[in-house]
Design a protein around this nucleic acid. Structure first.
Lengths: 205, 205
DNA sequence: CGTTGCATGTAAGGTGTTACATGATTAC
DNA sequence: GTAATCATGTAACACCTTACATGCAACG
């Protein structure tokens, strides 16, 4: 039995009620609502695109819509239709409930600290370096470097934008983290380019 | 139309045949085989657990088995049963084909350089810092720091183990990368702990 | 004599994506 | 007039995981 992971199977007759086992994405969406604003699915997508994206992949529109339904069914959010004055299509806006706040808070405090999930395509390519020409290796790294530097600059800009807004204290903390993370990602490319150089020139005495 | 991504839809009447659109995991498994050894599904899982794991999540047994079937159907690998002398269950071993080598090589050279996928649970928690006590924030970070340091040490050990084996030149490169990556991840925790300290002591003049 | 490791595979189900349908408003 | 943005949602499907079934060998 290699693929097992015993799971306490609900019950838990101790005072605390069990938190429902939602996927992390669900908690992320509930987390977006936990800042208190009433938001539509569309808003949520936009918001997650430019805040979560630095450290968490942004779910698609359709997933956000289905997560919202799930959260509403669980009693963690309520929705209401809002008629648009201008005449465009009505929108459905969501607001977190008291139970929802309790649940995210408990999740944030009690959930196990799992290792981050990383799928680093560029590194997978380098790992298969025996299949590429050195020039192509460098090309892959150059593209990844561009990406990292773009992200770093975006984080830098956002930090400026969020400055001294007390409500954004913690999100700003993660932006600072992101600025350093993507800086490191960029520098790691440079380190690897140097290692490749060394490997080719055969600097072995 | 927000969720579109036009896809050239096969055809491509230029000389080159189209590479089949396999998921990255499939290429990763084929990549494991591209080092030339004849391996069972079980071997492949073990191998991916301790090599890919530093920069790419390791697929489950059952997925590896189904990827192998897919690769065999595509003509990228062949398999044969091997009877076990000792009497335990027979195993099926896989070997990459010439077409398989061509395909991974082309994939590694030609596939677009996509940004890494990151789902950083610990950062998601910090981002929701308004829901936690400062002590709990630090606890989340401490656990993540432990993880990062463990990974860093493993990479360090593996680098020693792989030294001067010419065949492992590129995998060793990614191990060096990993050692630096997890070192940075650890240092990023320390940076954030300092930022939290500052936030609490309110060092604002 | 129970646990761990070796070894392969199926079934069921959850997670998440793309494609499509629909339609009004605003900007070029 | 046509493209982009706002806005919501369904359907189909791909990806991937867990649970389960099965069974032998070696170790303590």
């Amino acid at each position: 039995m290699v693929e097992k992971k015993s799971k306490a199977k609900e019950s838990a007759p101790d005072g605390e009620a069990e938190l429902p086992a939602l996927p992390a994405t669900s908690w992320a969406v509930l987390g977006l609502l936990s800042f208190g604003e009433e938001l539509s699915g569309y808003d949520l997508k936009k918001w997650s695109d430019w805040s979560l994206r630095f450290f968490y992949w942004s779910p698609s529109f359709s997933q956000i819509y289905s997560e919202l339904k799930r959260l509403e069914k669980a009693g963690f959010a309520t929705s209401r239709m809002v008629a648009q004055e201008t005449g465009s299509r009505d929108k459905r806006v969501y607001r977190i409930t008291g139970e929802g706040m309790d649940a995210v808070r408990r999740w944030a405090r009690e959930a196990p600290v799992d290792p981050p999930v990383l799928k680093h395509g560029p590194m997978l390519r380098i790992w298969l370096g025996h299949l590429l020409e050195p020039e192509q290796l460098r090309e892959v790294l150059a593209r990844h470097r561009e990406f990292a530097e773009t992200m770093r600059l975006r984080a830098e800009v956002d930090i400026e934008g969020a400055r001294s807004e007390a409500a954004w204290a913690y999100p700003t903390l993660t932006l600072k983290w992101a600025e350093r993370y993507y800086r490191s990602e960029r520098d790691l490319v440079d380190g690897m380019l140097a290692d490749i150089e060394e490997l080719e020139n055969g600097t072995r005495p």
